[in-house]
């Protein structure tokens, strides 16, 4: 499978890249990790005339805590989440998510910015970022703007990102000693998109959660926040019944469609089960940390 021809640009600064995007408009596509774009180009499902390769832009690959945020550069590779001890220790949800994305070679190149920018509800980071209450920093002709994650995913492959904007950073509120999380993904085999997956991040206050974030992967046109489940749990003592009810609400609030991965009914059930399992793990982790 061979992609159609294109013109290739390698801007060495962010402003240069944005200028190219402005100049070429719809004809241009951003190439970062390339692991969503290049397969689509090989099947000729996408045939952009211009490719703006942003990999040469410096200083967009980092993971650091700063100003109350965990900041992840837009070009940070998935593998960095696996390899950074601080992520594994303080943000197990991010670690659990990263290791379930595709396979090791893909994670060596694929970027977190790209995973989010693609706007694919089947990708894993979108739900994770919902659970974490992240913010997306997009840089465009008018400089930086910060988009709350709840405002970011607008539809199938459709995000709040302007065609002239590049995701330069993802910001996640710094986790404290009372918070933890996990990602439970059901997949047909390694490397598959999720049949359904559930991201959970909790912050404990005594025996009950002060904050709960739940994001659902690949059970709707966009990643879905299980809002009613979150609200149900906040401030309540954790009981099996409550967790079960949270799972049930999540299964009601998702919008899966039947495909090779299962029926709508099956996927709703998986969402319920995984939500419960993820909540249990997250609570256990948060309470033991």
């Amino acid at each position: 499978m061979i992609p159609a021809a294109f013109e290739y640009f390698t801007p060495s600064t962010l402003s240069e890249a944005i200028a190219l995007l402005e100049e070429h408009g719809d004809e241009a596509k951003i190439l970062s990790g390339g692991h969503s774009l290049i397969p689509m180009m090989r099947y000729r499902l996408a045939s952009p005339e211009k490719i703006v390769d942003i990999n040469g832009i410096p200083d967009l690959e980092y993971i650091k805590e700063e100003d109350g945020y965990l900041k992840i550069g837009g070009l940070t590779r998935e593998v960095a989440l696996e390899d950074t001890p601080m992520i594994r220790e303080k943000y197990p949800l991010l670690y659990d998510t990263a290791v379930m994305i595709a396979d090791p070679q893909v994670r060596n190149l694929a970027t977190i910015g790209g995973n989010i920018a693609h706007g694919d509800a089947a990708n894993d980071h979108p739900a994770t970022m919902l659970a974490l209450g992240a913010e997306v920093v997009a840089t465009g002709p008018n400089g930086e703007r910060v988009i709350p994650i709840d405002d970011f995913f607008l539809g199938l492959y459709y995000t709040a990102l302007e065609p002239t904007e590049i995701i330069t950073e993802i910001r996640i509120p710094v986790a404290d000693g009372n918070s933890s999380g996990t990602y439970k993904k059901m997949e047909r085999k390694v490397g598959d998109y999720a049949t359904a997956a559930v991201a959970v991040q909790v912050t404990m206050n005594g025996s009950g959660p002060a904050k709960v974030g739940i994001g659902l992967t690949n059970v709707g046109p966009t990643p879905i926040r299980a809002k009613r489940s979150e609200e149900l749990l906040v401030g309540q003592p954790i009981t099996d019944e409550l967790i079960k009810e949270a799972g049930k609400l999540a299964s009601e609030d998702c919008a899966p469609t039947a495909d090779l991965r299962g029926s709508e009914e099956y996927k709703r059930s998986v969402v319920s089960v995984l939500t419960q399992r993820a909540l249990k793990t997250a609570f256990e982790r948060a309470l033991s940390s």
């Binding site: 059901m186 047909r188 049949t195 079960k244 799972g247 049930k248 991965r261 299962g262 029926s263 099956y266 059930s269 998986v270 319920s272 089960v273």
Partner: peptide, 18 residues
């Protein structure tokens, strides 16, 4: 023997974890 197929049986028999 896929997961959805087995789950369907468990559900019909009333033993699936919900």
């Amino acid at each position: 023997v896929t997961a959805p197929k087995v789950w369907q049986i468990l559900k019909e028999k009333g033993v699936a974890e919900a």
